[in-house]
Design a protein around this nucleic acid. Structure first.
Length: 287
DNA sequence: AGCACA
């Protein structure tokens, strides 16, 4: 598993001009050039801190940097989180989307892919997160914390290979302001997956897999899925249009793990981007 | 956005 991403600025700048029409037989492990590796986060309470955003994402695989942006529209706050690759961004999105960010007010995070990647200029000595404050039309950087340790997140342990590429920072406008929904005046809290009455689907040991190419075969998918512990059975349905698949696992945790790893993955039959994986609405019935 | 099998 190689996550080297070139830090060559020229490479980065060129990415935008590439649409994605890669031949479907390309190597699976490399993200397409130009793929979005930045997440857009809304639904934040307006008193959210950049540190909280950082703590939210720092443990995610492939995390690079994040920024909090006061949009200047009212008290609206949004955030961006950048990862080393598209698939890591998707995995993090998947894990955190719909999460109850503030139990006091019940505000749920809404996470989507950003419209464009964050560009980052290398700034030696700058922290792993940044604040962009458009409230007074002025831009300020903040690194209230020198290290990324000792924050308000007790259940976190520094894992090797996660947030240790703090070379990132930037003062950018990656433009992707979306609908805010956030009218939550409150303090911060602990994370809790929104289980019901919210936006997220409840966890299930069967996965629903969509955005498959028209020629996707059961074998192809089966081969991929069988690398994940607990995988049982795959079923493909074509239902008129594009095929979708259901993959059953022994345990919810195993399904979750496979989903998080495979989210956004390209198959050799993919022609419309990577797989989109969710928990199925109901468990596959025993046969 | 697209969720079947009983």
């Amino acid at each position: 598993m190689a996550y080297h991403q070139p830090y060559d600025p020229f490479y980065v700048y060129q990415l935008h001009s590439h649409p994605h029409h890669l031949p479907p037989q390309l190597p699976l492990l490399a993200d397409e050039p130009g793929a979005i590796n930045t997440l857009f986060v809304s639904g934040l309470p307006n008193d959210v801190k950049a540190r909280e955003i950082h703590n939210l994402f720092r443990r995610r695989h492939g995390f690079e940097s994040c920024q909090l942006k006061y949009t200047g529209r009212g008290d609206q706050v949004v955030a961006f989180a950048t990862f080393t690759s598209h698939r890591f961004a998707l995995a993090a999105m998947n894990e955190l989307n719909g999460v109850k960010f503030d139990p006091q007010t019940g505000s749920n995070l809404h996470i989507e892919l950003a419209r464009s990647n964050s560009r980052r200029k290398e700034r030696p000595g700058s922290g792993p997160y940044v604040v962009i404050d458009n409230r007074n039309k002025e831009i300020s950087k903040s690194q209230d914390d020198q290290s990324d340790e000792g924050d308000s997140d007790p259940d976190e342990v520094q894992e090797p290979g996660n947030s240790d590429s703090p070379k990132e920072n930037d003062t950018t406008k990656s433009e992707a302001d979306s609908e805010p929904d956030s009218k939550a005046p409150s303090a911060n809290g602990h994370l809790e997956k929104a289980s019901e009455g919210g936006s997220g689907a409840r966890a299930c040991s069967t996965l629903f897999i969509a955005n498959l190419g028209p020629n996707c075969t059961e074998d192809e998918l089966k081969q991929l899925l069988s690398r994940y512990p607990g995988f049982h059975i795959l079923k493909i349905r074509a239902r008129g249009g594009m095929p979708v698949a259901f993959a059953d696992f022994e345990e919810i945790e195993q399904a979750t793990d496979a989903m998080n790893h495979l989210q956004g993955n390209l198959l050799s039959s993919s022609d419309r981007g990577g797989m989109h994986i969710e928990y199925a609405r109901s468990k596959m019935r025993k046969q």
